[in-house]
Design a protein around this nucleic acid. Structure first.
Length: 468
RNA sequence: GCUUCCGUAGCUCAGUUGGUUAGAGCACAUGACUGUUAAUCAUGGGGUCCUAGGUUCAAGUCCUAGUGGGAGCGCCA
């Protein structure tokens, strides 16, 4: 009997599974619950391939109380038996067990997962075991599908997957604090004549950091291969303590030659809608579970996004709406301010009640590389704002004019020396081009309905926490 | 980093104005039940009330500090 080929549990619930009814099957997985009476035990088995459990029916007389007693929540099993149409309600098929092998028990007094009631905070403390829960199984399967869909979308649209470096010597766009990478002995640092640390003795011969963005290198790809995207981890050493920030997060950054700001917005909107649609079509069971257990408006919200145009307006128009709203904001609204969360939420959640794309921000509150408008005041940046999670995408048309870019960098007192390779893209054969950055975990928050970003990545990194 | 709330059984929580031996549900153990659906029912075991100090005749409850966690804000994706 033990030579039957194993079937993954998800394949017992597909259309073809009907052929397997009344046939011998073998499944392997972990016990979610066991219940029953003196005569029969019902074991809900899950192998991670699907949110759905297969019900294993075990006659007590056949297997004996001693064996069944060792089967508790968390135990791992091989079960051989016959796939049959279920006598009970709640499942179409089940396995009438003929042979059960226990791979490993899970001591009920020390195994932390129970078949009921855990908070996200508790599960975060046992992040090494939480993928075994229904919720994290669902979230992580969605995560995989979204990662796959990102590659599929870009590949199908003629983009090339571009590997920007993780370790970098440049402080890209000054976007926040960086983690330093060094092999120097921190207890015995080499000093130069000025008494400062001598980085010429460091591994790379200069000071290096974990990247905060692959954009600048991405622009090198766009101005050679045409359309590229990066998809990898980036790092921010900010002391950010919020449900929307991680110190290590996955960043999707497409960069396109010959795209202006409108092409950029069209791409971003189509891209997000594609991903949401992909999730609805390919992760139905998992999303239905999350909808049922955490947020019964989730499916509705996802459907809304794919069926409505994102509202596009300029920063200046947004300021007018906020000024005329008569809503009392903690931070007063006036042209030139950086929009606060409360302002963005008012626009998205109260005024428009749909995703919003804001463009043409004051140049003072945006990065140096954004294309300057003719008005001399604004730049062609764009932010896509979503309900709950705020900024999900930030991007812009890039300044393609060498003189304008250089002037702006000098205005900001930037050290030009590390950017010479970047400026070469404008020195030689410069072209109009655009790009944006999508926070992968923020997308996942939206798609799964999870309200804390730490719960959409297997091993979250945030201040004071690098466990597992 | 700032503000604010919270920390009581393995888990989720209740605990009145400071007052006898700190409670419930789930989990666990034992028993009942021939098909359960987070099974149900009965009985039972299970506590450093986050830590340290303080106020008081008396502290889970009030005060101070520390520590861990959540939320809001800032930084941003």
């Amino acid at each position: 009997m033990d030579t039957i080929k194993r079937t993954e549990i998800k394949n017992l619930f597909t259309g073809q599974a009907k052929e397997k009814v009344n046939q011998p099957v073998c499944v392997k997985g972990w016990v979610r619950t066991k219940r029953g009476n003196k005569a029969v035990a019902f074991i809900a088995l899950n192998d991670g391939s699907t949110i759905n459990n297969i019900q294993v029916v075990a006659d007590v007389e056949k297997f004996g109380e001693d064996l069944l007693k060792r089967i508790s929540t968390g135990a791992s099993l091989r079960v051989n038996g016959t796939l049959v149409e279920s006598m009970g309600k709640g499942q179409s098929v089940e396995i009438q067990a003929s042979e059960i092998e226990i791979y490993g028990q899970a001591d009920v007094s020390t195994y932390p997962l129970q078949k009921k009631g855990h908070t996200m905070e508790f599960l975060r403390d046992i992040a090494h075991l939480r993928p075994r829960t229904n919720t994290f199984g669902a979230v992580l399967r969605v995560r995989h599908n979204m990662a796959f869909a990102i590659h599929k979308y870009f590949n199908d649209h003629g983009f090339f997957y571009w590997h920007s470096p993780i370790i970098t010597a440049s402080d890209c766009e000054g976007a926040g604090e960086m983690f330093q990478v060094t092999t120097l002995d921190l207890d015995n640092l080499p000093k130069n004549e000025a008494g400062k640390t001598d980085y010429s003795k460091d591994f790379f011969g200069e000071s290096t950091f974990m990247t905060v963005s692959g954009q600048l290198e991405g622009e090198l790809g766009a101005t050679s291969l045409g359309k590229i995207y990066t998809f990898g981890p980036t790092f921010r050493a900010e002391n950010s303590n919020t449900p929307r920030h991680l110190a290590e997060f996955w960043h999707v950054e497409p960069e396109m030659a010959f795209y202006d700001i409108n092409d950029n917005m069209d791409l971003a909107e189509d891209f997000i809608k594609y991903l949401v649609r992909y999730a609805l079509e390919n992760c139905k069971d998992d999303i239905d579970f999350l909808c049922k257990m955490y947020d019964n408006t989730l499916v509705e919200r996802l459907n809304f996004v794919i069926s409505h145009d994102f509202k596009r307006l300029t920063y200046t128009e947004a300021i007018s709406i906020l000024e005329e709203s008569k809503h009392k904001f903690d931070v007063p609204v006036s042209w030139g301010i950086d929009l606060q969360s409360e302002h963005e939420r008012y626009l998205v959640e109260h005024h428009f009640k749909c995703p919003v794309i804001l463009t043409d921000y004051p140049k003072e509150i945006k990065s140096f590389y954004m294309k300057q408008n003719d008005d001399g005041k604004t730049v062609r940046g764009m932010d896509i704002l979503f309900p709950q999670i705020g900024e999900i995408i930030g991007g812009s048309e890039r300044e393609a004019d060498f003189d304008k870019l250089l002037t702006r960098m000098k205005e900001l007192n930037m050290n030009l020396e590390p950017y010479q390779w970047y400026l070469d893209t404008r020195r030689f054969g410069t072209v109009p081009h655009s790009g944006f950055g999508l926070g992968f975990e923020r997308l996942l928050m939206f798609v799964t309905g999870m309200t804390n970003i730490r719960d959409v990545i297997p091993f979250p990194r945030y201040p004071k926490n690098a466990k597992f």
